[in-house]
Each structure stands twice: as C-alpha cells, then as structure tokens.
Simulated assay, not measured.
Amino acid sequence: MEHPLTEAQAFGLLTAYTFVYVLPLYASSKTRASPDRSRDAPEAIRARIWTVSLSTTACSLATFFILRHVCSGTACSALRLMGYWPLGVTETLKTCLLTGALFAAPLYECLVVDGVWREWVDGLEPLRHVWAEWPAWRNYVAGPITEECLFRAAAVPLLLKAGSSLGRVIFLSPVVFGLAHVHHFYEFRVTHPETPLVAAIARSVLQFAYTSLFGALANFLFLRTGSLLAVVLVHAFCNSMGLPRVWGSVEPYWLSQADASKSRQAVLWSGVYYVLLFGGAYAWWRNLYTLTESPLALAVF
C-alpha cells in the first residue's frame, strides 16, 4: 500500500520539529543559559515558556494541515488523530489509575511517610505551589503540555500515516524526544562550571535514557487511548514523582532522632515501601492492556 507521506519524511518532520522547539531557546539572551542567572529565574522561565509555546503551536498547525491534506479529511478527523478531540476523559482516568499503581511506593513515601497528605488536607497547598512558583509551573504544566503536543500529537499521527510499524513509532521516535533534552548538558555546564565533566556527562546520559524510556511509554499510552489529555497528565505526574527510590530506607516524619525504636520502625515502614514498589509494578504490568483499551485507540495491538 502506498502512503502519501513516506516514513523518511515523517521522521524528517519529527526531527525538524525538535529543532524548532529547541533552537529558539538560544536565539535570545532572555532564554539562553547564563553563568550569572539560574535556569529557575522567573524571567528566564517566562521567556522560555512563551518561546516553546509558539514553537509547539507552529508545529501542531503544520501537522494539522498535513493531515488534512494526506487524509483528505475534515478538521475533526485531524483533531481526532492528534488526540485533541474527543478528550478521552474515561481513558484519562484509567490511565492515571494505571500510572498510580506503578508509582504506588513513591506515593506512599510522599503522602504517608513524608506527611505531604497534611498539605493537601490543609488547603491543597501543593496546587498553590504549582500556581505560585515558576519552576513548578514549568515542570508540571508548561513542560508536559508543550512536549506532549509536539512529540505525541504532532509527531505520532504523521508516523502512522507514513506506514511506520508500531515498533518504530513506540521505540524509535522517543529517541528523538530523548535527544531533545541533550541540550540540557550544555546549559548545565554553563550554569554549573564547577561540576566535573564526567559527572555532567553521566547526568546527561541518565536524563537521555529516562526521557527516551518515558517517551516510549507515552507513545504506547497515546496509541492505545487516543487521548492527548491522558499522556499530558501522566507526564505531569511522572515529573512530580521523579525516579522511584530503589534502595535505602524510608523514615517517617513523626519519628524523632531520640526515638529508641526509630531503627525498628524504619525497617517496618521501609518494608511496606518495597512491597508496594514491586507489587505496584506487577499490578501495572498485569493491567497495562486492560486499562488502556479504548474505542478511541489510534492503533490496535
């Protein structure tokens, strides 16, 4: 079967989108990394969010009109392929439940062991933090929205229409997503010149591996649910959780240094953590296909 869009063209567009997303960040002194200004400076974050929002909008519009052309379809069909409409509220809830199972242990450590549940009960303080702090807004709102609109909604439909295999869509395209974060190595070297080169390289390699792995998961979820909202929320949640602890003990916040039973209690609470870590991963794997099944799916597998 001939496709109006070749696979090389689709991957070429994905690569071009990545450059459109990243390069403008270095076009202005307001967005470039600087030794005398933190990456978390509010004025820098505001400028960068504005820049990537424009870049994402431009790339999304390009995909929208390409899909209209290659599919000879309506605006609704293009939006459907890009995951914008229908929203997929049910799919989003099930996907969040699935991701919560995978992060059962970190959630337990955060909410129970560290006592963050009190901040939610006392007035949704974590949400106020996201609203008031620019770094939190970047990490949990602007970043997930712009990256998923670009690397999922604007890229995946093109690869599908080009006839790319599901394996390539899921596992190969996230490499580009991972490479889009490599420029953080340069920024880190500029803002942290005292850090040894080996440590900076190791940090960048770890970030590349993590973002590529997450990109594969996000592609899988996007193809299975057909919902952009679902992957945006999963992205925001994963950013807030970070990498799960895989060693060490957890210590409840209510135990004082002088508590004679602290060591024994720490072992108990740590045991619960690791049971949830492996049990949550098992529950996630067993329900991966069940909770992502949807009539909105962009591909059946």
Rank of each mutant, 00 (worst) to 15 (best):
Leu93Met: 15
Leu93Asn: 08
Leu97Ser: 06
Leu98His: 12
Leu98Cys: 04
Leu98Arg: 08
Leu98Pro: 05
Leu98Thr: 11
Thr99His: 05
Thr99Ser: 12
Thr99Arg: 02
Thr99Trp: 07
Gly100Ala: 05
Gly100Cys: 13
Gly100Asp: 01
Ala101Asp: 07
Ala101Tyr: 01
Leu102Trp: 13
Phe103Thr: 01
Ala104His: 03
Ala105Leu: 04
Pro106Ile: 10
Pro106Lys: 09
Pro106His: 03
Leu107His: 05
Leu107Lys: 02
Leu107Arg: 07
Leu107Cys: 07
Leu107Trp: 02
Tyr108Pro: 02
Glu109Trp: 07
Glu109Gln: 14
Glu109Leu: 03
Cys110Pro: 02
Cys110Tyr: 12
Leu111Asn: 00
Leu111Gly: 04
Val112His: 03
Val112Asp: 09
Val113Gly: 10
Asp114Trp: 14
Asp114Gln: 15
Asp114Ile: 09
Gly115Val: 09
Val116Gly: 02
Trp117Ala: 13
Trp117Asn: 07
Trp117Lys: 03
Trp117Val: 07
Arg118Cys: 04
Trp120Asn: 05
Trp120Gln: 07
Val121Met: 02
Asp122Gln: 12
Asp122Cys: 04
Asp122Tyr: 10
Gly123Arg: 09
Gly123Pro: 01
Leu124Glu: 02
Glu125Cys: 09
Pro126Ser: 08
Pro126Ala: 04
Arg128Met: 06
Arg128Leu: 12
Arg128His: 11
His129Gly: 10
His129Val: 04
Val130Leu: 14
Val130Gly: 02
Trp131His: 13
Trp131Val: 15
Trp131Asn: 01
Ala132Cys: 00
Ala132Trp: 01
Ala132Tyr: 12
Ala132Asp: 15
Ala132Ile: 07
Pro135Trp: 06
Ala136Glu: 01
Ala136Val: 06
Trp137Arg: 13
Trp137Glu: 00
Trp137Leu: 15
Arg138Gly: 01
Asn139Val: 07
Asn139Met: 08
Asn139Pro: 01
Asn139Ser: 12
Tyr140Phe: 15
Tyr140Ser: 03
Tyr140Gln: 11
Val141Ile: 15
Val141Trp: 01
Val141Phe: 02
Ala142Thr: 13
Ala142Tyr: 03
Gly143Ile: 03
Gly143Val: 14
Gly143Cys: 13
Gly143Ser: 12
Gly143Tyr: 11
Pro144Val: 10
Pro144Tyr: 08
Pro144His: 03
Pro144Ile: 10
Ile145Tyr: 05
Ile145Phe: 10
Ile145Met: 13
Ile145Arg: 13
Thr146Cys: 13
Thr146Ser: 10
Glu147Asn: 11
Glu148Ile: 03
Cys149Asn: 01
Leu150Gly: 01
Leu150Phe: 03
Phe151Asp: 01
Phe151Gln: 12
Phe151Glu: 10
Arg152Tyr: 09
Ala153Met: 10
Ala153Lys: 05
Ala154Gln: 05
Ala154Pro: 00
Ala154Trp: 06
Ala155Phe: 05
Ala155Tyr: 04
Val156Pro: 11
Val156Thr: 14
Val156Gly: 13
Val156Tyr: 02
Pro157Thr: 02
Pro157Tyr: 10
Leu158Ala: 09
Leu159Glu: 09
Leu159Tyr: 05
Leu159Asn: 08
